[in-house]
Simulated scan of single mutants.
Amino acid sequence: MDTSNYRPGLEGVIAGISAVSMVDAEKNLLLYRGYDIHDLVTHCTMDEVAYLLLHGELPGKESLAAFCQRVGTDREVPGAIYELFRAMPSAAHPMDRLKAAVALLATFLPEDEPNSRKAERLYAKLPTLVCASWRISQGQEPIAPDPSLCHNANFFHLLTGTPRSDYIADVFNVTQILYAEHGFNASTFAARVTVSTLSDLYSGVVSAIGTLKGPLHGGANEAAMEMLQEIGTPERAATWVREALVQKKKIMGFGHREYKHGDERAKIVKGYAKELAERTGTRLWWEISEIVEAEMLAAKKLHPNLDFPVASVYYLMGLPIPLYTPIFVLSRITGWSAHIIEQLDNNRIIRPGHLYNGPEERSLRGA
């Protein structure tokens, strides 16, 4: 068996051409449709970035207003969705609840409209799904969406009943932008594979949600916060990391397939994490994180990825840990949809080959 062309996990394999985003690992550069993420998090809202990813250009004032009006008036979901959530076990994983909800939602939505409009509908409705699912699982009633609010303010309204426009809302906006898109990552590639069979956008999104659930992808932010809680104090942090490495445990939130010199997104959020710790008067998670980061760099030469600082940032915002990955979905739906649209606009079914390492040819003759 010739394995010279085999790349485990498709590492380094070029699987397509895309105009949605570019990662330059050597320069620590990430562009969405040509715009540097530093510029986007400084000057844009998540609604503007959503428009950029779905429609190719940043919106003007009138285009943005029209987009926000469409999204705002499209946030309600059918009553059957709430009944579905009530019928599920309260202990069901939020990502499993979300997969089922998107699949059911698709049966209520128009099939004969452009994929860009379908994508807008999902961008509008996913916060309603995520927050209603959580509240119902906690024995609370869902809150009706507010069509007058922006994406971020509406999320906090749906979750807690109170929209936010403070520093926490600003930081949440940054994380949503940074989670929105990242090339041919596992969930995006899963979505592209699904729709390459000429399945529909909704099926592609369900595939992506299932892929994002895994702790090596979207679930890493939840696992990172649980790790910080297990460490508990700054005094334990260095020893905990060293012992975990000896036991060959995976330290969640570190390393990245593409970035070898540090994830620029993590660097951006780290600055906000420090400021948020100061503003809230809760430096514990920041101090533990600093020690863990130093130990990992010294021992493994690994830098944190985006999920590591986001974990403690979301915790300081008061967001429930099981919602970290569904919150990822609220943003990444824009990147997934952009890739799905791109795949279907110039489609060829994705069907790679493989190497066989099973038994040599066998026969039942003479048995």
Results as ranks from 00 to 15, higher is better:
residue 278 E to R: 15
residue 300 K to A: 02
residue 284 L to T: 10
residue 145 P to L: 11
residue 259 Y to D: 09
residue 38 H to Y: 15
residue 161 G to E: 00
residue 206 V to I: 10
residue 23 V to S: 08
residue 107 T to R: 10
residue 269 V to M: 08
residue 178 L to N: 07
residue 282 T to F: 12
residue 283 R to P: 09
residue 130 V to H: 02
residue 231 I to Q: 04
residue 210 G to S: 05
residue 127 P to T: 05
residue 294 A to K: 13
residue 254 F to L: 10
residue 90 S to H: 10
residue 306 L to D: 08
residue 49 V to R: 08
residue 319 L to A: 13
residue 70 R to Q: 13
residue 98 L to M: 10
residue 156 F to Y: 09
residue 111 E to N: 00
residue 251 I to M: 10
residue 50 A to I: 14
residue 35 Y to K: 09
residue 158 L to N: 02
residue 185 N to S: 01
residue 3 T to P: 00
residue 29 L to H: 14
residue 247 Q to R: 15
residue 266 A to L: 05
residue 71 V to P: 12
residue 297 L to V: 11
residue 129 L to G: 05
residue 96 D to C: 10
residue 103 A to M: 12
residue 158 L to W: 02
residue 235 E to D: 10
residue 70 R to T: 06
residue 132 A to D: 04
residue 353 G to A: 09
residue 235 E to V: 03
residue 158 L to A: 05
residue 56 G to M: 05
residue 47 D to I: 07
residue 275 E to I: 13
residue 90 S to T: 10
residue 182 H to M: 02
residue 155 F to Q: 06
residue 242 R to K: 14
residue 166 D to A: 02
residue 226 E to L: 15
residue 165 S to E: 10
residue 150 C to F: 07
residue 219 G to Y: 00
residue 46 M to D: 09
residue 306 L to H: 09
residue 298 A to S: 13
residue 71 V to S: 12
residue 177 I to E: 05
residue 224 A to R: 06
residue 273 A to H: 07
residue 29 L to V: 11
residue 259 Y to K: 09
residue 358 G to Q: 05
residue 321 I to E: 09
residue 78 P to D: 07
residue 110 P to D: 11
residue 322 P to Q: 14
residue 62 E to N: 12
residue 222 E to P: 00
residue 6 Y to H: 15
residue 95 M to C: 01
residue 84 L to C: 06
residue 119 A to T: 01
residue 214 G to F: 01
residue 279 R to W: 04
residue 207 S to W: 04
residue 178 L to D: 00
residue 222 E to D: 06
residue 258 E to A: 14
residue 109 L to G: 00
residue 348 R to Q: 10
